[in-house]
């Protein structure tokens, strides 16, 4: 894991929050995974929006 600060993102469609520090272990995404490093075929677990359409907004840095 690199040493830069992790960020928190929120899906603008459904409000789902992705916290880089926590990752999504149940979805195969390890804690500390940066948004940029999430696979392109990943979809929001709550609303199904694909990463390409995800339009995450930065909640906190």
């Amino acid at each position: 894991m690199n040493s830069t600060r992790t960020r928190v993102w929120q899906c603008i469609v459904c409000g789902f929050v992705y916290d880089e520090a926590k990752g999504l272990p149940e979805d195969g995404i390890a804690a500390g995974t940066r948004w940029e490093d999430i696979p392109e075929d990943w979809a929001c677990p709550d609303c199904g929006v694909a990463k390409a359409d995800f339009e995450m907004q930065l909640l906190a840095a």
């Binding site: 469609v13 409000g15 709550d46």
Partner: peptide, 8 residues
Amino acid sequence: YSKPMLST
């Protein structure tokens, strides 16, 4: 807007 966010 995100409709689910209306209740959060």
